[in-house]
């Protein structure tokens, strides 16, 4: 094992704009590493898992940090928006309370203020929390390089353990969520040993849009954390619910299907068997929570003026 060490020596670059970042990436391809919040990267560098010659700091690029509503009603989040900013954003809270809650429960408050959504997505670890709820929202990411820019759906963005679609010369600049024209509700529920800050043992996100009949699910998206080498959409479980009434039995069934689709691994942290059982329970709970939101009056139930959208706060709890 590698013991923690002092940080390796690197050249620190502080670009001011997206083009400048792309220029640096192109100039130092293979030798440069982008640093967003750095909460994971600094530890990886301490363990010499990553030893960049150039470290490109992104905190100095103001145009990467925003949360805005698009003209078409869509929501775009800049890669450098911090977990804190996302959880506090009234835009996010009003539309996707579960995304705000995911952000609020990413880690300690100290972590929230530094960790970013872009960094979280680009880590490529299956245990990080932002991908699953964003997968259920059909989010897309914008990747920019000197070669141009491209929009990539998050579904398909993850290629393998710690492998993403981001090319070495590319920068993930923003996350796009298209407007939803039907009533909807979402939830993300995770399990870990202690009551806060732990790495997610297993997590499940669900997002349901309601058909115009007001009775059945028009569309259902379900995604999992730490249940495969990558953040995983479980499309079989989704299909089982689409066009149906989301009854207790149906959620039970979807949970079962999801647990068959999941392929978690056994490690010293937890066993595949336990994680599979959790998938079943968490998917069911996430679906029920999402369905409750769809079928009750407000699609985001939480009080918008709360200091923190943390699931441990009983005012927004509902962990079951």
């Amino acid at each position: 094992m590698n013991y923690l060490r002092e940080l390796p020596k690197f050249e620190y670059l502080a670009p001011q704009s997206i083009p400048e970042v792309c220029e640096m990436l192109a100039a130092h391809e293979g030798e440069a590493k982008l640093m967003a919040g750095g909460t994971d990267l600094i530890i990886m560098m301490r363990r010499r898992e990553v030893v960049p010659h150039y470290l490109i700091g992104l905190k100095s690029v103001p145009e990467l940090n925003f949360i805005r509503e698009e003209k078409d009603g869509g929501l775009t989040i800049g890669a450098m928006a911090t977990s804190w900013e996302i959880q506090s954003s009234s835009l996010v809270r009003q539309r996707y309370d579960f995304l705000a809650k995911t952000a609020a429960d990413i880690g300690s408050i100290e972590n929230l203020h530094v960790s970013t959504i872009g960094g979280n997505l680009c880590d490529g670890f299956p245990c990080v929390d932002f991908p699953a709820p964003l997968l259920t929202l059909d989010a897309k990411v914008k990747l920019v390089s000197q070669r141009g820019e491209r929009i990539v759906p998050l579904d398909g963005f993850y290629l393998g353990y710690q492998k993403t679609a981001v090319e070495p010369d590319e920068l993930l600049t923003e996350i796009q969520i298209l407007p939803h024209n039907h009533r909807y509700g979402g939830a993300y529920i995770k399990f870990h040993d202690r009551h806060a800050i732990d790495i997610t043992t297993t997590g499940a996100g669900a997002f349901i849009t309601l058909d115009s009949d007001g009775q059945t699910a028009r569309d259902v998206k379900i995604a999992l954390t730490t249940s495969a080498p990558v953040p995983l959409r479980v499309k079989g479980a989704e299909a089982a619910l689409c066009g149906r009434k989301v009854t207790e039995e149906a959620t039970e069934e979807a949970g079962r299907i999801a647990s068959e689709e999941a392929s978690p691994r056994t490690s010293w942290r937890s066993t595949a068997e336990f994680r599979t059982k959790l998938v079943q329970v968490l998917v069911r709970r996430a679906l029920r929570q999402a369905w409750r939101k769809v079928t009750t009056s407000s699609s985001s139930g939480a009080a918008p003026d709360l200091w923190l959208m943390h699931p441990l706060d009983p005012r927004i709890g509902e962990n079951r």
């Binding site: 094992m1 040993d193 202690r194 009551h195 806060a196 732990d198 790495i199 010293w268 942290r269 441990l312």
Partner: peptide, 28 residues
């Protein structure tokens, strides 16, 4: 009782970090 466990495989400590060696938090 509930959380802590120094995990070793072939004598190698697998969780030499407060991330994975889980001591009670205020919320527990």
């Amino acid at each position: 009782a509930l959380y802590e466990n120094l995990i070793r495989i072939e004598g190698q400590v697998m969780n030499p970090s407060f991330r994975d060696y889980k001591m009670p938090l205020i919320v527990d």
